[in-house]
């Protein structure tokens, strides 16, 4: 792959989601220009470190709801959620961050992996309300200023996917693993640490190569 192909548009959301998000962003005062695509917007907004939270819901919570504040990819957001709303579903359905995938929905496949306060977890096994005040990083938050994260770049270069459905979860796990000094650097340790992310296409060989290659890239950068 050439450098020119490395854009952040890999996870382009649907037109519907863009329209919804455009409405929301316009409502709380984000610039119209920034709302062209979600994948372009969020990292930019993260960099701005908004002082005021984006208010998704202005009204007081209804019966059976709670008001929570989530900082998602650097953007503080306030919204009302049902007490039984799952974090994964809130991100996908309320905040239109559909990069995080729903696979098994029972903590068995790892497709929904994201970072909460820097720690990788299965977002299908959390209710949103328990994360009130937490900082969440999803796949949409990895690229910075239009430049892919080294792990994203490595997955691209190593063709570390076929259908791509598990890819965002694989990448989020890889990002966490590469930052964790308690996890070994050898191939066996990486395979073990990544075993919570199932790939039905069986792209494991290339995923391993991508993770190890990203390790090298990150060492050179940092």
């Amino acid at each position: 792959m050439t450098d020119s192909s490395k854009t952040v548009n890999t996870f382009t959301p649907t037109v519907e989601a863009i329209e919804t998000s455009r409405r929301n962003f316009l409502k709380f005062g984000a610039s119209g220009a920034a709302a062209v695509t979600l994948s372009g917007v969020l990292p930019g907004m993260a960099a701005q470190a908004l002082a005021q939270p984006a208010v998704i819901d202005a009204h007081t919570p209804k019966a059976g709801e709670r008001r929570i504040r989530l900082t998602v990819n650097g953007v503080a957001q306030e919204l009302n959620v049902a007490t039984n709303a799952i974090l994964l579903d809130v991100l996908r359905d309320r905040l239109q961050l559909t990069g995080t995938k729903k696979g098994c929905d029972h903590g068995q496949c790892g497709a929904c992996t994201l970072l909460v306060n820097g720690v990788a977890i299965n977002s299908c096994l959390s209710i949103a309300v328990q994360h009130d005040g937490d900082a969440i990083t999803t796949i949409e938050g990895l690229a910075q200023n239009g430049t892919l994260h080294p792990v994203q770049e490595a997955f691209w270069e190593h063709d570390a996917y076929q259908c791509g459905y598990c890819t965002s979860g694989q990448i989020m796990s890889a990002v966490a693993i590469l930052q964790d000094p308690a996890i070994g650097r050898d191939d066996a340790s990486v395979r073990e640490a990544m075993s919570g992310n199932i790939c039905r296409c069986g792209a494991y060989k290339n995923i391993l190569a991508a993770v190890q290659s990203a390790r090298g890239k990150m060492a050179r950068v940092g």
Binding site: G107, G110, T113, V119, A120, I121, N122, L125, S126, S173, A176, I177, I183, A193, M194, S195, G196, N197
Partner: peptide, 8 residues
């Protein structure tokens, strides 16, 4: 379990 489950 798995890394992300053990984290949780």
């Amino acid at each position: 379990a798995s890394t992300q489950l053990r984290n949780k």
